[in-house]
């Protein structure tokens, strides 16, 4: 472990893979093809981008000017807020892999994860400077904030869709079809999870009341 960390070429590969995320942003078709086929992306790089996204998302809450985001701090739950990124991401990755693996998708689960995280790059890259800049403008000059903010989200979505097409070696039409299918798969998973959790909690409650009854009778 320590040996791996101290080896210089590992660090160089990691930094190169991070730099490659910026290349993917500007050259999505070429970039995402090379990401898996040339093994230019790494888990470390993907994790870094994901963590950066989460950090920026949290920081915007606190450091964006109140002109653009007003936070009702009493109701903010950081873990829920982070889950609002992580949970859909997990659903997307699993749903996409589960579907595409049945239909000639060339990407493996890990590759789907890496590509999705690389697709998130525009979020920190655009939102972070935007957050800093928001503190130096007035409300009249603030139109650019909402526009750029929306652009960053659309950019991410487009990148992720493109990335899926490239790593699974799908045509454009098939890619779009499976994007929609993945969204449906996510809904189905949410549905099943909800049922699952309510069933479990019912079961647990049943056991608890049973034990209570026992203790009461003893």
């Amino acid at each position: 472990m320590i040996e791996a960390l101290t080896r210089k070429e590992n660090w160089i590969r990691y930094l190169n893979s991070l730099k490659f995320a910026l290349y993917c942003m500007t050259h999505p078709l070429d970039g995402f093809w090379d990401l898996t086929h040339e093994r230019r992306g790494t888990y470390a790089g993907a994790n870094t981008i994901l963590i950066a996204t989460l950090m920026v998302r949290l920081m915007t809450l606190r450091y964006t000017s109140f002109l653009f985001i007003q936070v009702y701090w009493e109701d903010v739950n950081i873990f829920l807020y982070l889950a609002s990124v992580l949970f859909p991401l997990a659903l997307w990755v699993i749903g996409n892999w589960a579907l595409t693996t049945l239909f000639d998708g060339k990407g493996r689960l890990g590759q789907v994860y890496i590509a999705t995280c690389y697709g998130l790059t525009p979020y920190p890259v655009i939102q972070f400077p935007l957050m800093v800049l928001s503190n130096f403008v007035t409300i009249e000059e603030g139109q650019f904030y909402s526009v750029l903010s929306i652009i960053s989200l659309i950019y991410c979505a487009l990148l992720i869709v493109t990335a899926m097409g490239q790593i699974h070696e799908y045509s454009a039409g098939k890619n779009l079809l499976f994007t929609v299918a993945t969204l449906f798969a996510m809904l189905v998973m949410i549905f099943i999870l909800t049922i699952f959790f309510s069933m479990i909690s019912q079961g647990v409650l049943y056991m608890i009341s049973l034990v209570r009854e026992f203790l009461f009778r003893l």
Partner: peptide
């Protein structure tokens, strides 16, 4: 902000802000 939030749904199911 609520429009932003709706768009943020791409990433989020819950938006507690």
């Amino acid at each position: 902000f609520s429009i932003l939030c709706i768009l943020a749904l791409v990433f989020s199911v819950i938006c507690p802000v």
